[in-house]
Amino acid sequence: MSGLVRWILSFSLIIFLVNSTIASERKFNLGQIANKEEVDGWDIDVRPDGLGAPIGSGTALFGEEIYTEQCAACHGDFGEGADRWPALVGGEDSLASHDPEKTTGSYWPYASTMYDYIYRAMPYGVAQSLSFDETYQIVAYLLYMSDIIEEDFVLSDKNIGEIEMPNRDGFLLPDPRPDIINTQGNPCMSNCQVSTNIIGKARDIDVTPEDE
């Protein structure tokens, strides 16, 4: 081997080592490299900032028809819910009450989540059957019914990350637990001052299923 070749080889080894600190080496040589088409087919999530939102658009005006066709049977004509299926609209100012109603309008912090969930999981039992535009239309219609956007507002991949949801600031981070007083591992063992009056019995509520 000539000195020059040896020099080139050792030089390329250095390049290789430098590269490997940037892009790690495969350790086990298991699995296949995914191609773009494969990733695009499965990578359907949409983030609050709009990252991942597929190109498309829709308005509430066009959303009413597809909503009535695909969603209203379970969620009601006006998003009020049917039977035990969830309401999607309403519940404003109810979150601090005895009977909070958590809907997309009253509770959901991001419009992106509505797009993401409706596209991936709805209609219930026929998941991922809506087109991108149909999904934008349905989200626009729900936002319109909750008075968040106007009827002719064009919701799209460009602006879904900018919709201001009423309960955007309704969530607390980080997790404050353990949030109870006794974390010292030495609770009262005898003659503890506790009330032992029975104030309720599950038997009296009488909603427990019984074996036939």
């Binding site: 979150l95 601090a96 509770y107 912090p109 989540t113 969530f171 607390l172 981070l173 404050p176």
Partner: peptide, 15 residues
């Protein structure tokens, strides 16, 4: 966001 968050009496929810 809409499900596994813990609503407090204040109307705010832990996430």
């Amino acid at each position: 966001t809409s499900k596994y968050t813990d609503l407090l009496t204040s109307g705010k929810a832990r996430m």
